[in-house]
Design a protein around this nucleic acid. Structure first.
Length: 773
DNA sequence: TGCCCGGGTGTTTTT
DNA sequence: CACCCGGGCA
């Protein structure tokens, strides 16, 4: 067991103390994955059957990688038997094998967010509600968080608090939508993402024998990223662990960034209550980053009120200072970063894959893509529209889904007339209506329209029946043919392949290729299975429903710059990290400024971002940015101020300032703002002279939409101190002589000659001039 | 039934 | 800006 020698003392303790409830608080970069990996390997070495180990990770990718690492230590054949994956994928598997208990077929469909929203939209329409008021997306979120808190549709509808809430927001019928949504999902034999956790809880609650069986089975339970679990997940773990109490949770409260999705830091605190005799191990030595990065990150996170005390430190070298780059526009930001990557590649002989560009929102990726493409730097974007969300992929998958589960109404609606087969909206509406009138599923009507008085002409109904026959013919092959064969057969017989093949436009060609790629993926999937078990198409469907972009990394062509949101960067590390869009209202997000809790979550997010960096971390912001169509001004993020200034190198002043025209450009204003520690500035700047902006901090600066309110104008006549002929000193330009003063407040400006840089016009409102004589 | 145009609307973050 | 939806027209 020489792997134990590769660990420091707290890590080793966390690995070898395998029995009983254990909490590992792991600072960023402290070798958390290593500990989890070794802990599982250690269990197996001690003779624990891998089938009895349940390891829950945050992403499929993390699970896959961890499995591979464990495999290296204990052997592939052992490692592959561990129950490891995300909550969603592991419990989808379990739900599948226990489906009959809760009245679902084995091959139930997993609705993705788009399916769910579509269905909700339909329901809202059927109820004749105003879509502008009941926005499907928001209703979906509301239902989602109810499920994450284990509030069923029935209890939601009878909960007066929730009802009052909904009434306040003008949506008193949300409860009824939830109920109908549940019924429709059930009728379609479908579960949404949240159901996978919700229904697991139902299963474990209502069927003690099932609970007992899994309690017995999972003697050892490990949960990664515990700070990001929600109530539904917490309760599953608690129940499953109740028998042996060999539960080990690993997390870092400072990296909790999913409260918006119901994650609850309280789960970490609850651990103490649930298992009073738990052991706790703190991993505080960071092996990932330089001292600069670790200290800078600490200086940020310490501003949060809610946190578990810990002291992350490192033995690594001091490392490079954190640069702050400023760009005039979002496009410039892209160019600057791309150029910087280019330079670094040259100077440090770095490879593309050593770089990551992290942003707050997916929409920010565009300018970086363009700039990187221009410099011929390979990149890959994670998140955003994933492969599986493309139209052509969803279309084909819908055929697969319908084959496995004909009740799947979302899939049915998607493909009943694609490719075109003469079943128009009128016919479809008639089918839906007939289904509703007879209180049955659409599939039943599709299969036997004559039984349900469908108001549509005979010709159309014949086509409907043909469609049903086709789907049924696929269905009978479900468990006899290998997944790949059936999939290709469906792609061909459905007409999809031909439809796309005939489209010779570039997009059409690419769609055709995507379909081929999907089919190849299924082939790989079928073949990756052990020889003795046949992996069917429905096995693939379960898998694919929970797959994200990050999960299909192509092994070749791996040398690319990574572009992703900070959220998806969690758990990853890169030598060179750029955190971009460091602007107020973007990072921190505008929507997170309403409460301390939300702001603290944004700060943790920033902490996560900084701590992804190994060697060098760079922050950047733009002065202006296109946001929904028009150019908006941006203030640098308060988070820049929150980094201890001794680890920061602020941007140089802009090269050229055109004060004549755009004198209230924020780029100009920005330069004059006190940069550091402004939040904590004890005394107002003693610099006498011309205190153009009275505000001690950026926070007091003019908000963008309030165009230059009176408050920003110094009411004093302090600038009357300034006279033509005086010698002054300027932060950036050095010594100079005032040549001319003109204009009236607030637009009073001075023309100053600086020997170093020449003649400049300065707006007194912003310029900081010290009078020298 | 299908296509095109115009208006309205919206942006965190993800399994 | 980019997308989606609805309405009007071929």
């Amino acid at each position: 067991m020489d792997y134990l020698n590769e660990l420091n003392e707290p890590q080793r303790q966390a690995v070898v103390n395998t029995e009983g409830p254990t909490m590992v608080i792991a600072g960023a970069g402290s070798g958390k994955t290593r500990v989890l990996t070794f802990r599982i390997a250690h269990l197996i070495h001690k003779g624990i059957d891998p089938f009895q180990i349940l390891a829950l990770t945050f992403t499929n990718k993390a699970a896959k990688e961890m499995k591979a690492r464990i495999g290296k230590i204990v052997g592939e054949s052992e490692a592959k038997n561990i129950w490891m994956g995300t909550f969603h994928s592991v419990f989808a598997r379990i739900l599948r094998s226990e489906a009959d208990r809760i009245g679902y077929p084995r091959d139930f469909t997993i609705y993705d967010a788009a399916d769910a929203k579509n269905l909700i939209k339909d329901i809202i329409r059927e109820m004749n509600l105003d879509e502008k008021v009941y926005k499907p997306g928001l209703v979906y979120n509301r239902i989602s968080s109810a499920k994450n808190n284990l509030i069923s549709a029935t209890s939601y509808a009878s909960n007066t608090d929730l009802e009052a809430d909904d009434r306040m927001s003008g949506k008193p019928l949300t409860g009824e939508i939830y109920q109908r949504y549940e019924q429709r999902c059930f009728r379609a034999s479908a579960m949404d993402f949240d159901d996978l956790l919700f229904k697991t809880n139902v299963l474990l609650r209502d069927f003690p024998d099932v609970l007992h069986r899994y309690q017995q089975k999972f003697r050892y339970i490990l949960v990664d990223e515990y700070q990001d679990t929600n109530y539904a997940q917490y309760l599953i773990v608690k129940k499953l662990a109740a028998m042996y109490e060999n539960v080990c949770v690993v997390g870092d409260d400072a990296q909790s960034i999913y409260a918006f999705r119901g994650a609850n830091i309280q789960n970490i605190l609850n651990f103490k209550k649930d298992y009073p005799d738990f052991k706790i191990f703190k991993l505080e030595q960071n092996y990932r980053s330089t001292k600069t990065i670790v200290h800078a990150a600490n200086s940020v996170i310490e501003k949060n009120r809610d946190q578990i005390q810990k002291d992350v430190w490192t033995d690594n070298e001091e490392g490079e200072i954190i640069r702050v780059l400023r760009a005039a526009t979002d496009n410039e930001e892209g160019k600057q970063i791309a150029a910087d990557i280019f330079d670094t590649k040259m100077n440090a002989q770095a490879r593309n894959k050593e770089f990551a560009i992290l942003y707050r929102t997916n929409a920010q990726s565009r300018s970086f893509e363009e700039a990187l493409r221009k410099l011929n730097i390979n990149y890959r974007i994670y998140g955003g529209l994933s492969f599986y969300q493309r139209k052509e992929i969803k279309d084909l998958l819908a055929y697969f889904r319908l084959t496995a589960n004909p009740n799947d109404e979302e899939a049915l609606k998607r493909v009943i007339n694609y490719p075109k087969r003469g079943i128009g909206d009128t016919t479809i509406d008639a089918l839906i209506l007939a289904a509703a009138e007879n209180n049955t599923g659409i599939w039943n009507v599709v299969e036997m329209p004559e039984m349900f008085q469908v108001r549509a002409n005979a010709g159309s109904l014949n086509k409907v029946k043909e469609f049903a026959t086709m789907i049924k013919s696929f269905g009978v092959q479900l468990n006899t043919k290998p997944g790949y064969e059936l999939a290709s057969h469906i792609a061909t017989s459905s007409g999809i392949l031909k439809e796309l093949y005939d489209d010779k436009s570039p997009e059409g060609v690419s769609r055709y290729e995507n379909i081929q790629e999907l089919l190849n993926g299924i082939k790989e999937f079928s073949e990756a299975s052990p020889a003795d078990e046949l992996r069917s198409l429905s096995d693939f469907l379960i898998e694919v429903a929970l797959l994200t972009d990050a999960d299909n990394e192509d092994p070749e062509n791996k040398d690319h710059v990574t572009l992703m949101t900070v959220h998806s960067a969690k758990g990853l590390e890169f030598p060179y990290v750029y955190i971009v869009g460091m602007e107020e209202n973007l990072f921190p997000s505008q929507l997170a400024l309403n409460s301390r809790e939300e702001l603290e979550e944004e700060r943790r997010l920033f902490y996560v971002a900084i701590t992804r960096a190994e060697k060098r971390c760079t922050l950047s912001y733009a002065n202006t940015r296109y946001r929904w169509g028009n150019l908006t001004h941006c203030e640098p993020s308060r988070f820049i101020d929150e980094v201890d200034s001794k680890y920061l190198e602020m941007p140089p002043a802009p090269k050229e300032l055109n004060f004549d025209e755009e004198w209230d450009e924020p780029s100009f204003r920005k330069m004059k703002v006190p940069k550091k520690d402004s939040l904590f500035e004890k005394e107002p700047s003693k610099k006498a002279a011309v205190p153009a902006t009275p505000s001690p901090s950026k926070r007091n600066l003019v908000k963008l939409d309030e165009k230059r309110p009176a408050t920003s104008v110094p009411s004093s006549d302090s600038d009357s101190d300034l006279k033509v002929g005086q010698n002054v000193h300027h932060e950036k330009f050095g010594k100079g002589k005032v040549i001319q003063i003109e204009g009236i407040e607030p637009n009073r400006k001075a023309t100053v000659f600086f020997p170093a840089v020449g003649q400049k016009q300065l707006l007194l409102r912003f310029a900081k001039l010290d009078i020298l004589d």
